[in-house]
Write a protein that binds this DNA or RNA. Sequence first.
DNA 1: GAGCACTGC
Length: 830
Amino acid sequence: MLPALREASRQVYLRSREQKKLDELQDAILDEQYLFEGIELTAKEKEEFRYKRTVLELAKRGAEDLDSFEEYRMPESYDREGKVKQDRRFAVALERYKDVDGENEKMNPFAEQEAWEEHQIGKAKLQFGAANRKKKDDYEYVFEDQIDFVKADLLEGFNEDDMEMEEAEIKKSAEKSAFMQLQEERKTLPIYRYRDELLQAIDDHQVLVIVGETGSGKTTQIPQYLHEAGYTKKGRIGCTQPRRVAAMSVAARVAQELGVKLGHEVGYSIRFEDCTSDKTILKYMTDGMLLREFLGEPDLASYSVMMVDEAHERTLSTDVLFGLVKDIARFRPDLKLLISSATLDADKFSDYFDKAPIFNIPGRRYPVDLLYTKAPEADYLEAAVVTVLQIHVTQPAGDVLVFFTGQEEIEAAEEILKARTRGLGSRIAEMIICPIYANLPSDLQAKIFEETPEGARKVVLATNIAETSLTIDGIKYVIDPGFCKQKSYNPRTGMESLIVTPISKAAAQQRAGRAGRTSPGKCFRLYTAWSHQHEMEDNTVPEIQRTNLGNVVLMLKSLGIVDLVHFDFLDPPPAETLIRALEQLYALGALNDHGELTKLGRRMAEFPLDPMLSKMIVASDKFKCSEEIVTIAAMLSVGNSIFYRPKDKQVHADNARMNFHTGNVGDQIALLKVYDTWKETNYSTQWCYENYIQVRSMKRARDIRDQLEGLLDRVEIEPSSSPNDIEAIKKAITSGYFYHTAKLQKNGSYRTVKNPQTVHIHPSSGLAEVLPRWVVYFELVITTKEYMRQVIEIKPDWLIEIAPHYYKKQDVEDASSQKLPKGTGRAVMD
DNA sequence: GAGCACTGC
């Protein structure tokens, strides 16, 4: 099996090298031809000639790098079952490779250029202008079959002449007053001509699925139309968004269009910021915020219309919302429900909402040519870099956006790109490389929004952040290697991991669309048309099916939903995930034997946190350290992005971090120390820099902390503080996390007590070299090993003191022959 | 002795 795989990889490698050599040869022949015929070139032709030479040079540099290819692509690492690990991408590439001799022969992003070259060689005559026109025809012919679905979209959706006219109209109206101008602009949106039809449809049906691509104006216009039609007399109109910035900016825009002050008639509501008032009739909010609102108003009584926007994104919150609003619609016939989505899932939504009719609104987007590779690319990083360079020297002006899976790849690509363009000086245009990913410090992120100087080209290297969360103007070329990192959750072990996965067709379409926002564009897909057609899933697995549902289950329980396993989910999560979440809630004492919420459970549900964190906070009351625990909860829920660890200063960063671990107090206590020290510096940014701490994360922790502190009152917890009683703080943590206990084994690894399995302390932990006998951990992650992240040492006696229903004396005795507890006592609280 | 896709409450 493995030797075969190796051999196959060798073949892929040889094949790609061979192809490269052929390309070079072809170029060389062409070059000689110029000289041989002694043709005088015009300035423009010379420029093209220079470009070609540069391409050649770049290709040669690429070929040198190929020598390291084999080792780079074929690491000798296997997973626990002995299968080849990590290189799932390789396996995928291999699958694609099978098809090389098949129908894909003509799918090559540079077929354009090759066709042109063949043509040139044949004619042995130089006619650049004519050749350019010709190559376009060739190219279109070659790719015709592959663009059917996007092409259909483009032809129907949008006509460039219309657009120009509309733009001219907008310009004309610029002379009118700002308000009048806005009103004119509203009328140019594609949705405008469907206004009456749409209102009629909403009037006729309780639930309507609205399909409209970005740019159709649905998010800003529909609530206004409904207001104009009088719906706001019966209650406010709500519109949910998956992201905070979207909710804010859309609300601001609509307030402007209606000529009212933001926060009055039009407002938005997001976490940490409620910009609404009694007057608010159009309310934009994040989907998570609406979920929270459900707790206080389970029938949405104050709303006459609820619009769930961007439903196709299928965030965890939208999926939960679907189940809830569908239920409400049954006993509130006066409530109108609008589900709005970009094209792909409309039928599915319609079926789910009892065959609700679908209303189509065309979008406004420029056409994007889709180009596929001829043969599969075994090394997409290299392929992406080469494609960037090729675009840079052969394609007209316009910025480039490349999708990578993470920071590491982005940094690698940046380095290679810099190395290959180094020393070319003025022979190629300036290339501005902009990396962008969520953990990049904000000042460096801002770089992508700077306008590209005349004559230069911006190359944005991005993670999935550029797929939905931010849009960059001026992008004309998208390079899509076809992978992303996806979270997956194993309910059996309770472990989370990030896995590099092929993207879905829907995601690929979204990525391609990024090239056509401001002008027609091109999308270079680094996989074959065949594999796009036959191997990629239609849609990404919705988040609800690959995440821990602890807090979702707690929230649904507090809404009084008894039978969660049969709850009407659009796509039900795995039963095991639900069962594990329920089990955990039992163990924590949030549910009684009948599966109903206990008083403790109701208090826990008040916090927008994982059940274990909530339990920890509620328990802190007893140990008189709520101040400290709230800080720890806030720091833990910010995630693992607190410590900044740049590649070139890892030692400094590690030293700085270890300062907070003095006394081997454990990671959670260290986080507390980080926060308190920061607070003492009066929340100094400078201090963060000096200690290699992410300012953004700390500010977030402060926001969360403030919110949690505000909620203490609601669950009747008196603020209390015991900053020097580490034991009390650790006991409070254990009250939430006794479920996550692990015991040291002879070989230095740990064994978890619940679901016995071998785990290790994460090397970033302050206790990684201390190895206490008993630990409680915050979470389990799989990377190169199974790691416990954020651990503290505990005394086993605490377990019996804190969770007597869960641990018996023999469970925590240290005799190594003792069998570890298995499925010990169900919850017997209350 | 390691690796942090992206949101959201």
